[in-house]
């Protein structure tokens, strides 16, 4: 650990919209999983629309949200990512200060996770079940066979998502055990107990999130009304 005397007290790292997006995705993923297993398709569709909305919101928030939510702040190139991995594995390298928000590896997993979720919801919009009696809102634009193919891809992407969630949870465990860093509480209350570099990230006013969420809600509603 390179940090000099940490600033006393806590520093805010995650803004409310970022945290809310995260936990909403977690719960909606659970709802989607259970409703698919138990064939409650009406609720599965509704939860799926929710996932679509939250993913779109998080993508947009990555451009206009608080500092730690912005892709520009945490997505790093291959060289920076390699440096970070070497440091993580204990190789002494040049000491770049640890990022206050997502680290470069976390950034990768966020990109993959959001891309998978967007793929997943898009596939679901066209999916058709075996008896042709349950389907996504846009299934009318594709044939039965194509809709079935969408459903199978939907199932395959689900497996990828499960794997990604496994990686995510394993990383949390690794940080807890190997680096004695708890990642879950900050994602709940938004604060980290110390600032390794003394950097305090900037945040944006709450109404920006409200404005964005309203826009995305209308967009999704409009999209679904096209069916």
């Amino acid at each position: 650990m390179t940090a000099e005397a940490p600033t006393n007290g806590r520093v805010r790292v995650w803004d409310f919209p970022t945290r809310l997006s995260h936990w909403t995705l977690v719960s909606l993923f659970g709802v989607c999983w259970w409703t698919a297993k138990s064939d409650h398709m009406r609720w599965h569709r509704i939860a799926g629309y929710g996932v679509l909305g939250v993913v779109l919101f998080r993508l947009a928030w990555g451009f206009c949200g608080g500092q730690t939510a912005r892709f520009g702040d945490f997505v790093r190139g291959p060289a920076a990512t390699c440096r970070y991995v070497r440091k993580l594995l204990g190789h002494r390298g040049e000491d770049a200060p640890a990022p206050i928000g997502h680290n470069p590896l976390g950034a990768l997993s966020i990109l993959v996770m959001l891309a998978l979720l967007l793929t997943q919801t898009t596939l679901g919009l066209f999916a058709v079940n075996v008896d042709g009696f349950a389907s996504g809102p846009f299934a009318r634009w594709v044939s039965f066979g194509t809709g079935r193919r969408f459903a199978h891809l939907h199932a395959a992407t689900f497996q990828l998502l499960l794997a990604m969630i496994g990686v995510h949870l394993a990383a949390i465990g690794f940080y807890r055990l190997a680096r004695n860093e708890s990642l879950v509480p900050p994602m709940i209350h938004g604060f980290k107990s110390r600032a390794p570099s003394g950097v305090v990230p900037y945040f944006v006013p709450w109404w920006r999130a409200l404005f964005l969420a309203t826009g995305i809600f209308l967009f999704v509603a409009l999209l679904l009304s096209m069916r």
Binding site: D131, G132, S135, A139, S143
Partner: peptide, 17 residues
């Protein structure tokens, strides 16, 4: 046979929509 059944059911539901 079941695929034919599903295809007909989907086609029917598409018309109802």
């Amino acid at each position: 046979h079941f695929k034919a059944l599903g295809r007909a059911a989907k086609s029917l539901r598409d018309q109802i929509g």
